[in-house]
């Protein structure tokens, strides 16, 4: 069977592509080009005075020790979130994939957090971990563990890692589970007949077979940690205490939206765009070699 579609009409293919192109242009190319344009300008918020400064904004941003600090925070944060999310989600998926009573209930319950908006998740976590009004936060202090994420940077970072991961685990769980369920039962049974224990089965059969899923999730989680965690950070810590939870994304927001420094904020967006593109490229370049596509 020939798989290539042949169009006799010359216009039809472009017509079919049009909706996607329009969306991409309006929601990506246009704002992205605006960001790039803005990043070489120095402008007051009202646009009354504009000066072309070429790469000066980039120079300022990159020589700013606070920006370097934000890079470090982001690195620690994204790696922690990604690891935490994937390990736990994989564990849950492997567990839920077994033949156990009420498996369906577990699966449903594990998916709930995904339905929550990040800010709502943050409010919930605050109810639990707030050192003054949170149930668990108070208990920790009563037990003599001085927990105060409003003043302790490490605590704050731990909290936003947990809160962000909690939301993302559901998403990862779903993909891992789908991956595991697509493995033919025969393969698993064969391994078991050969005498593979649970760990051996997982290590040598299941894990390699779901590697495309793992790879996909790795990329998605990194991107999630970079961009979609703004709501959690904003609602829980506002980037503090000190600057201990100010990630690159949060800095773009606070410089651009709160402080109205459009040029530098735009420059940061462009840098962020480059960093993440590079990360994705690296992942495909080096990690993908170890992935088996079925």
């Amino acid at each position: 069977m020939q798989r290539r579609a042949i169009f006799n009409n010359r216009i039809l293919p472009y017509f079919l592509l049009l909706p996607q192109l329009v969306i991409t242009i309006i929601f990506f190319f246009w704002p992205a080009s605006q960001a790039i344009y803005q990043s070489v300008l120095e402008q007051d918020p009202f646009g009354l005075r504009t000066r072309f400064v070429f790469l000066e904004n980039f120079q300022t941003v990159l020589s700013d020790p606070l920006y370097i600090e934000a890079i470090q925070v982001t690195a620690i944060f994204s790696v922690s979130v990604t690891l935490f999310v994937m390990v736990l989600a994989l564990f849950f998926a492997v567990m839920a994939d077994r033949q156990i009573r009420g498996a369906q209930t577990y699966k449903t319950l594990l998916l709930w957090p995904y339905a929550l908006a990040p800010a709502v998740a943050a409010v919930l976590w605050n109810f639990i971990f707030n050192p003054f009004i949170g149930i668990f936060g108070r208990a920790l202090n009563d037990w003599g563990l001085l927990w105060d994420y409003k003043l302790n940077g490490t605590h704050a970072l731990i909290l936003i890692v947990i809160a962000s991961s909690w939301k993302q685990i559901a998403h990862n769980f779903l993909f891992f589970l789908a991956g595991l369920q697509s493995i033919p039962a025969a393969v698993v049974e064969a391994a078991m007949i050969d005498g593979a224990g649970a760990w051996k089965l997982f290590r040598s059969v299941l894990f390699p077979l779901i590697s495309p899923t793992t790879f996909y999730l790795l990329t998605i989680n990194m991107v999630f940690a970079f961009f979609d965690t703004f709501g959690v950070i904003h609602a829980l810590t506002d980037g503090g205490p000190g600057r201990s939870t100010t990630t690159l994304m949060y800095k773009v927001y606070s410089d651009g939206y709160v402080n109205l420094n459009l040029g530098q904020s735009a420059a940061q967006s462009v840098i962020l765009m480059l960093i993440v593109s590079a990360l994705v490229w690296l992942q495909f370049r080096f990690v993908e070699g170890k992935v088996h596509y079925a």
Binding site: A32, A35, L272, F284
Partner: peptide
């Protein structure tokens, strides 16, 4: 498969970044 995945991921990445660009209209962080 590989290429599609790469393209899809890149689009996802760019779309997210684009949404984060400080365009003068108060879009994503409202």
């Amino acid at each position: 498969m590989k290429r599609t995945l790469l393209v899809l991921t890149l689009i996802a990445v760019f779309a997210t970044i684009a949404a984060c660009a400080p365009a003068p209209t108060p879009a994503p962080t409202a």
